[in-house]
Structure formats: structure tokens, C-alpha cells
Amino acid sequence: MAGQLTLSIVMPEREIVHETVDEIELPGAEGYFGVLPGHTPLLATLKIGELWYRKGQEKFYVAIANGFAEVLPDRVTVLAELAERAADIDMTRAQAAKARAEERSRTPSADLDHERARAALDKANTRVRVARHAQTHR
């Protein structure tokens, strides 16, 4: 397959990735899906999860929470509430956040918002997973 994709990942505060890549995998709301150049136009919502993109032989991981992806044959735009590149994640902080989230969802209390607690735990887990990828790849 000839051609490449322009991937840009933006969050409300800033644009975090703007690169030309060969392949992308996204955490769609209905399951992970891969995108290669020449993909049919697609608009998808994303859930909390990890996204990766491949440039040549190298894979890069990004943690994503709640967003949208607009896929065009030569371009992919990801709008995410939260996005963090693996290289930017601080492993110790990610793990601390995970421990906190686990703690919170385990101790039941009256004012616990289950939905939010679960989402927080999900995010924390994803960050740790993504950060681990960064460590094995570097």
C-alpha cells in the first residue's frame, strides 16, 4: 500500500502529535480498529484506551481518554479530552494514580460515584500500560 497518513492528535490544551505515519490503531468505542492509508472516511468515538502509530519500524504509544477520530484516506485527526504520549508519562506518578484509583473504587462509600471511579481507574491503568510500552521500546 503506497502513501502515508498524516496523524494529528489534539487535546483542548494543545496539539500533542502531528506526524506522518504508516499505520495507526485506535481504541474505538466498539473495539480497537486499525487504519492504513486509503481508509474509507470514518467518524468514530473513542473510549479510554491506548492508541499506537507506526512510523517505519518504530511504534509509538499514546494514552487516550474520551475522544473522536476523524479518518480520511490520507489524514487522521484525533480529538481527545486527554492524550499523553508514552514518553511523557511519569511511571511513578502513573502508578501512584493507579493505586489511588484502585483504593477509591475498593472502599465503598455513600458518596462514591461508581461511574467516575471506574473511569479514573481505567485511565490510570491505561497510562501505566502505555508507559510500560515506552520503557520496553527505549
Binding site: 466498539e30 472516511p41 467518524l43
Partner: peptide, 10 residues
Amino acid sequence: YLYEPSADEI
């Protein structure tokens, strides 16, 4: 576009 899930939900 293709929509995933439906256009309304998005």
C-alpha cells in the same frame, strides 16, 4: 462517512 457508532450518537 462511516459512523461508529451511529451518527446520532456521535
